[in-house]
Each structure stands twice: as C-alpha cells, then as structure tokens.
Amino acid sequence: MLSYILVSILPASWLIAAINDLGELKIPNWISITLVLAFPVMALCFGYSIEMLSSSIALALGVLVLGFAIYTTGQFGAGDVKLLAATALWVGPAAFPMFLFKVILASGIFAFAIIMFRSTPMLPVYAHAPWLMELHGSRRAMPYGVGIALGGFWSLHEAMAFLTVFG
C-alpha cells in the first residue's frame, strides 16, 4: 500500500504543476521540494542501491545546472527547471533520455497549440475565465509545466520508481 502512495507522488506532482502553470504561468516551489524530499523515502522503501541513488542524484544535479543555463537565456522558466530536475530523480538515468524526448515532443506540440490560440482574437467569453485571458495575453510566457506533465505521463511506465513497484 505504501509503495502505491509513494509512486503516486510523481504523477500527482506533475498534474498539480501543469494545472498551476496553465492557470498562473508559475510552478510553485513546494511541488519540486515535495518531489526532492519524498525521493529518499521512496528510494529507501524500494531498496535502491547506492549506485542507483547516486546516479539519480547526479542526473538531477546535471539537469538543474543545464536547465538554469537555459533559464538565463529566457527560454525556460525557473519553475520548469526545478520540476524537470526533481523529476529526473524519480525517472532515473536509464529512462531519462526517452522521458526528455517525450517531454520535448509534448512541449512542442503544446507550444504550437498555444501559439495558435494566441493568434486568434480574444473572445468575450474569456472574461469568465481569467486564466484564459492571462494565457492568451501573455506573448512570451509558455507553460512548459504542461509539456513536462504530458511527457511524464507518456513515459511514466519507464520511470525507475514506477518499474520498481510494478515491474
């Protein structure tokens, strides 16, 4: 039972991050912090070896460093970087390249949909949904948390934490 609860932390975090990023164009720090703090508990419960643990941590640190290098160019938000790095802990080095590919693909498709949405005139009905007005009016910000979540759900079955529980 505990293993199912622990494994559900990752997709729940993605879902909350995606909804928040879509609505506010921000990913709260507590989501990434939750993933980082829950990872050692999950690793301990699932019997991760020192090699598995250290390789996941090294991967997450590498993603964090490279992500913040991209962040400095203005192409990626800090919340997106932190969510991606925290997710790298759970996905693991073996599944991370395919996870990243799926995140990039999902983010690209979603970004195209957002660009198309923003190229249409703002409709009066958007006034009933302030988050739609914000999403439509923001020409620069892109909610990549949605792409991370979509790519994550697409590749969840390959994540190291998921495989540990479900084989």
Rank of each mutant, 00 (worst) to 15 (best):
A127W: 01
F39V: 00
S54K: 06
A94Q: 14
A159K: 00
G77H: 03
R139G: 12
P93G: 02
N20A: 15
L89A: 06
G167T: 04
P130F: 12
L6R: 07
G62N: 08
F39G: 00
H128E: 09
T120D: 04
I50R: 07
S32G: 11
I114L: 14
R140H: 12
A60N: 04
S107R: 09
S54E: 03
V125G: 05
M116Q: 15
L6Y: 06
M52Q: 06
K82C: 07
I57A: 12
M52N: 00
F46M: 13
S55P: 03
L135A: 11
S55Y: 02
A17E: 03
V41W: 04
G62D: 04
F96D: 05
S138Y: 09
T34M: 09
K82T: 11
S49P: 01
F101I: 13
L61F: 12
D21E: 09
L150E: 01
D21A: 09
G74N: 14
L53N: 01
G152T: 08
I50A: 12
L44K: 05
L37V: 10
F99G: 00
K102T: 09
Y48G: 01
S32E: 03
S32R: 09
Y4C: 09
M122I: 10
P121F: 05
L89I: 06
K102W: 12
N20F: 14
I9H: 08
L53S: 02
W90V: 11
G108C: 14
I5M: 13
S32I: 01
L84P: 02
H128W: 05
I9P: 04
D21T: 05
S119Q: 11
A127H: 06
T73H: 08
G145D: 04
V146H: 07
L123E: 05
P28R: 13
I5S: 13
I31G: 00
Y4T: 08
G145W: 02
T34G: 15
W90S: 07
I9T: 08
V36C: 07
S49A: 05
G108D: 13
G145K: 01
G79N: 11
E158I: 12
I33A: 13
E51L: 05
E158V: 10
L84C: 04
V125A: 10
L84A: 10
F96P: 03
E51G: 00
